[in-house]
Amino acid sequence: MGEIKYTKDHEYIRVEGDVAVVGISDYAQSQLGDVVFVELPKLGKALSKGDEAAVVESVKAASEVYAPVSGEVTEINSGLEAQPGAINEDPEGTGWFMKVKLADPSELAGLMNEADYKAYLASIH
């Protein structure tokens, strides 16, 4: 497993070679509550960093998930359609959203590592 990095909007990205797995952090899922629906991007979609990449809906509300980096969507977690609860149960494992082929690996430098993200969570509470 590659290194995991986080955005201030609580997406995570786990880099495995030139492909990155994207999802939402455990903190994000705990804030959302029960996830009941996910809208994922189309395969092959070219995302720019900060684009709306997906929508995650809890019982109460819909939230956008932003692309942590630029790149092309190479795989989506279609299992979430039937099991959106995986995002609550295992956000950084079976609850992943999509895989993205990195367009510009230097963008990773602007993201937080796990320790920085923990400190960031502590600072917003």
Binding site: S63, E64, Y66
Partner: peptide, 8 residues
């Protein structure tokens, strides 16, 4: 991820 607006 976007966050809902909160009233203060």
């Amino acid at each position: 991820m976007s966050e809902p607006q909160t009233d203060t």
